[in-house]
C-alpha cells in the first residue's frame, strides 16, 4: 500500500530562514491530519511543497506512490499527480469575475483534453458533475453568480466543490477557515470531515487554532520553527503539553476562540476576523 502523502527529508530555506527543515511525514489514505503551529512555523511552506506549488531545496514528496517533486525539481508527471490533490486556500483563490460554475468546472481541466478544456467546451457529464458538487456543498442556488458575489464561507465551499469535480483523493487545505466567521468555519470543517467519512478523501488541513484541530481530527502534527515537534493522537495534545511545546506562543494556539463561540447558541461576539477576536479577548 502506498501512502496518500509521503514527505521525505524535505527542506526549504528563504535566505537564512529555514522555513521547513528536514521534514518527514507519512499520511495513509483516509487519514485526517491537522497541521498546527504558530504563524511563521512553516505550515504554509510545507503545504505548498506538498502540492508542488513550491520546489524544495532537497527531499522528495510522493502522492499516492508517485513523486511530485524530488531533489529540488518537479517531476515530469507533476501536473498529472497534482490532479489527485485538491487544494484549498485561506483566501479561497477563486477567480472572482468568473461564475461559480466555471470556477468549479476548472476542476475538470486536468481530465478533459487540453484543447477542449482551454476553450471551455465541457461535456454534459462534466457540467452535471459540477452541478452535483455544488449541490453537495449546498450552494447550487448560486451556481450562476460571479464568485465574488458569494460570502467567504460560500466561496470556500465552492473551492471544495472544485476539488470534488477534480475527483481529488486527498484534500490539502492551508488555513481554510482563518478568514471565516465561526459559523461558516464550522460549516466548512463539517463538510470536509463528511467528505472524509463518506468518500474516504484524505485530509491534511493546517489550522491556526488547536480547538478545531482537536474537534475534527484524529491525528495532529505540530510544527515549530520549520520542524515537526509533535505527531500523534489529538487527545494527547493538552493545553499543558502545548505550553510545553510552544512556551509563550502557545497562547496564540489555545485561545478560547472561535470554536466555542460558534457552538454557543447565541454568540455575543460575532467577528469575521480571528485576529480581531483575539485582540478583543486579550
Amino acid at each position: 500500500m502506498s501512502y496518500a502523502l509521503s514527505i521525505d527529508g524535505i527542506t526549504k530555506a528563504y535566505g537564512t530562514v529555514r522555513a521547513v527543515s528536514e521534514i518527514n511525514l507519512r499520511i495513509a489514505p483516509g487519514e485526517r491530519v491537522a497541521l498546527i503551529g504558530a504563524s511563521g512555523s512553516g505550515k504554509s511552506t510545507l503545504i505548498r511543497l506538498s502540492s508542488g506549488l513550491l520546489t524544495a531545496d532537497s527531499g522528495e514528496v510522493k502522492v499516492f506512490g508517485d513523486a511530485i517533486q524530488s531533489g529540488g525539481k518537479l517531476t515530469r508527471d507533476a501536473r498529472r499527480i497534482r490532479r489527485r490533490i485538491g487544494l484549498i486556500f485561506q483566501k479561497f483563490n477563486l477567480v472572482n469575475r468568473l461564475s461559480v460554475t466555471t470556477n468549479v468546472l476548472v476542476g475538470a481541466l486536468g481530465r478533459v483534453s487540453p484543447l477542449r478544456g482551454t476553450f471551455g467546451f465541457y461535456c454534459r457529464a462534466d457540467r452535471d458533475a459540477a452541478y452535483s458538487a455544488l449541490e453537495q456543498v449546498g450552494i447550487e442556488k448560486h451556481a450562476h453568480k460571479r464568485a465574488e458575489a458569494l460570502s467567504g464561507g460560500q466561496q470556500q465551499r465552492a473551492a471544495i466543490a472544485r476539488t470534488l469535480v477534480q475527483r481529488a483523493r486527498i484534500v490539502i487545505a492551508d488555513e481554510p477557515i482563518a478568514s471565516l466567521d465561526p459559523k461558516s468555519a464550522r460549516r466548512v470543517m463539517d463538510l470536509l470531515s463528511e467528505l472524509n467519512r463518506t468518500q474516504g478523501i484524505t485530509l491534511l488541513v493546517s489550522l491556526h487554532q488547536v480547538d478545531y484541530a482537536r474537534a475534527y481530527f484524529d491525528r495532529i502534527v505540530a510544527m515549530r520553527g520549520g520542524e515537526i515537534v509533535f505527531d500523534g493522537p489529538a487527545a494527547k495534545l493538552t493545553p499543558d503539553f502545548l505550553t510545553e511545546l510552544y512556551g509563550a506562543s502557545a497562547e496564540e494556539l489555545i485561545l478560547p476562540g472561535q470554536f466555542e463561540a460558534a457552538q454557543a447558541p447565541h454568540t455575543p461576539m460575532r467577528m469575521e476576523n480571528p485576529a480581531e477576536l483575539a485582540r478583543a479577548l486579550n
Binding site: S51, L53, R79, R80, I81, R82, R83, I85, G86, L87, F89, K91, F92, N93, L94, V95, N96, V106, G107, L109, G110, P114, G117, T118, A159, R162, Q166
Partner: peptide, 12 residues
C-alpha cells in the same frame, strides 16, 4: 492566488 488555485487542479 486564483492562478495558483487553477494550477493546483493540474491545469496546463
Amino acid at each position: 492566488g486564483p492562478v495558483e488555485g487553477i494550477r493546483g487542479t493540474g491545469a496546463t
